[in-house]
Design a protein around this nucleic acid. Structure first.
Length: 603
RNA sequence: GGGGCUGUAGCUCAGCUGGAUAGAGCGACGGUUUCCUAAACCGUAGGUCGUGGGUUCGAGUCCCGCCAGCCCCGCCA
């Protein structure tokens, strides 16, 4: 539908221009050209597209809306290209123009999609200008020496999906894991490591720290109780920052240990991520300070070097500062974030040469990023086409509406959360098999449980608008009905079932589509909307739009499946319906793939 | 005190640049299976879109005030 939308936009603009040439010309000069406002129809009974412009142009053109609509229609009816695409336009209500695409256009669009493994989604133009197009998606970002918990769930899943969509569109995507691998807590950790396991330094591979979370907890406990330990830890921070060999080695060991744990989760969730922690930017921190100083943004206040933000005021009404270098000479996270922006935007090889930076972090950091972005802009680091975007998301809440915790009040570990989802899916599946008297192998049960459980967790998160808080509920996500992963997976299973029962989904002979039933048309049109949805997600970075689309597509397919026989009809009708099945399957699979969710043949 | 986000059906949520009679799912109630997986499908009930103003031909959507909840606000990340 993208191509049709584009063509019709041009055609309706031309019609508007021809209907009101003088007004159109003067509107061009004034810089706010008249717009026919062609959009997708809000309801099926209004056709496929609607022109809304007649209503809003009423004042400018000094005519009643229906007259304007009539004039536009006159021009449209003279346009051969238009008549080729659409049926005769209809005026409706106060002055809307409803457009319905001709059936032949729909079927030929479907057929061209059969031979298109990109399902109508264009690749970004590799023109010279866009060749430099590189996108950084900064997501997941757990802290070293801490286990991943629910807090990382949303960033990881949403960030991955956004990266997948951008990659599919042909952007060069840098998936960066900005792990917390630097900071004062390492003094404590290294000191504790030296205390409990001095051998670890000689043979880094020989030692297994085990549960790092427990290790962290014990270190923290010792730190809080033992003042000598505290002093030693502070000295350790200084040693680490000054590049002491032994300290760095311990630090590396801790990072390596964490990395192994993170990898397990990423492998399980099928997430690719390039680790580039905060420490990477250490060598650029001083340069940030120098550049901000040179550009005149840096102000020393109470010994700290700050940049005062525009439009952000504190209690006394004065601008709030962002601290770039503490009075003791140390840097903090704002400095690191600035160094990261600078590096990512800087052309290679001194930087990543990216022109779109996407940060998938919780909404609580909104003002932090607003501040950091502002400084980057004022420092002149952005080229004209560069975009900095914070992609915020809400909290994960329990069913009580409060931040999700375990029964004992602990943070929920991501690993355990995933285990539970899979195990619940398994219980459910076994019950179902028993009820239906089905026999399946253990391998099948394990595979389906794992796929369904993880898909449920991902989909539940992605299907909600990320800005709002998200109420986590195993019961709902695994309910296996409604807007859930299992519902979508089931639609695919049905299609796979048809193929097993002798339906050839990949008919090679020159196909002709002859759609007769309403539900067939509905399905056909739904399939054609996929391309527009993907472009919308690319722009708005809202994966839930894709989820809604896939859910609606599945609903339409299920109705189609319910109402019409597919295999038990005459040959022509059968082939035609098989093509609809195949395109539905391809679209669902590709859509799910962009959500990071693998699909099943049977479940 | 300043700033941000949120407030839509009993519950969980959609609602794209303002457009026609505000939509799903769950739950509730009722129906559908000699046929491709019923993890499905069909139907019924359920709403002063937090609230009061304003802009507009038209507002859930934009602007202002108020109420409620959550989050952020100089040397932690």
């Amino acid at each position: 539908m993208l191509i049709l939308h584009q063509k019709l936009t041009e055609i309706t603009q031309a019609a508007l221009q021809q209907a009101f040439p003088e007004e159109f010309a003067s509107s061009l000069k004034s810089g706010s050209p008249l717009n026919a406002q062609l959009v997708y129809a809000s309801k099926p009974e209004f056709g496929d597209f609607q022109i809304n412009g007649a209503l809003s142009l009423s004042k400018a053109l000094k005519q009643p809306p229906r007259n304007i609509a009539l004039e536009i229609i006159k021009q449209l009816n003279k346009d051969e290209k238009f008549l080729e695409i659409c049926q005769l336009p209809q005026i409706a209500g106060p002055g809307f123009i409803n457009l319905t695409i001709k059936g032949s256009q729909i079927t030929s669009a479907l057929i061209s999609r059969l031979n298109d493994d990109r399902l109508g989604i264009p690749l970004v133009q590799k023109s010279k200008k866009e060749q430099l197009s590189r996108v950084v998606v900064d997501f997941s970002s757990p802290n070293i020496a801490k286990e991943m918990h629910v807090g990382h769930l949303r960033s990881t899943i949403i960030g991955d999906s956004i990266a997948r969509v951008l990659e599919f569109r042909g952007h060069e995507v840098l998936r960066l894991n900005h792990v917390g691998d630097w900071g004062t807590q390492f003094g404590m950790l290294i000191n504790y490591l030296k205390t409990v396991s001095p051998k670890a330094l000689q043979e880094p591979d020989a030692i297994d720290l085990g549960d790092l979370v427990e290790f962290y907890r014990q270190a923290k406990k010792r730190f809080d109780e033992d003042s000598e330990f505290q002093d030693a830890s502070r000295k350790e921070v200084v040693k680490l920052q000054s590049g002491d060999h032994e300290s760095l080695q311990s630090w590396g060991l801790l990072c390596e240990q964490s990395r192994k744990e993170f990898e397990k989760i990423y492998t399980r969730l099928d997430i690719r991520l390039q680790e580039r922690g905060e420490s990477f930017y250490n060598k650029f921190l001083q340069a940030v300070v120098d550049e901000l100083k040179a550009s005149g943004l840096l102000v020393t206040d109470n010994g700290a070097k700050c940049v005062f933000l525009n439009g952000v005021t504190g209690k006394d009404g004065k601008p709030l500062p962002m601290i770039i270098q503490k009075s003791d000479g140390g840097f903090n996270y704002a400095t690191t974030d600035l160094a990261a922006i600078r590096y990512r935007l800087h052309s290679s090889p001194q930087g990543d040469g990216a022109n779109r930076l996407i940060y998938v972090t919780d909404a609580g950091q909104a003002s932090h990023f607003a501040g950091v972005f502002q400084i980057a802009k004022r420092a002149g680091w952005l080229k004209s086409n560069a975009r900095l975007e914070h992609v915020p998301f809400g909290l994960v809440q329990g069913e009580d509406g409060k931040k999700l915790k375990t029964r004992s009040g602990q943070t929920v570990k991501l690993r355990e959360l995933l285990d539970e989802a899979v195990s619940k899916a398994e219980t459910d599946l076994r019950q179902r098999l028993q009820d239906e008297g089905r026999q399946e192998s253990e391998a099948f049960i394990n595979h389906v449980s794992k796929t369904v459980g993880l898909a449920a967790v991902k989909y539940a998160d992605l299907s909600q608008n990320r800005v709002t808080n998200y109420q986590f509920s195993f019961e709902r996500m695994l309910a296996l009905q409604g807007n859930t992963a299992p519902y979508l997976l089931y639609a695919l299973v049905r299609i796979a079932g048809i193929a097993r029962k002798g339906g050839d989904l990949y008919i090679q002979n020159n196909v002709t589509l002859n759609l007769t039933e309403n539900i067939e048309w509905e399905l056909a049109k739904a399939l054609l909307k996929f391309d527009a949805v993907i472009l919308e997600v690319e722009e708005e970075l809202l994966p839930n739009r894709l989820c809604s689309y896939l859910f609606e597509l599945s609903q339409i397919f299920n109705r189609f499946y319910d109402q019409l026989p597919i295999l038990k009809t005459n040959e022509t009708t059968k082939n035609c319906r098989l093509i609809l099945c195949r395109l539905t399957a391809d679209t669902l699979k590709q859509g799910m793939n962009l959500l990071g969710i693998p699909t099943l043949e049977r479940m």
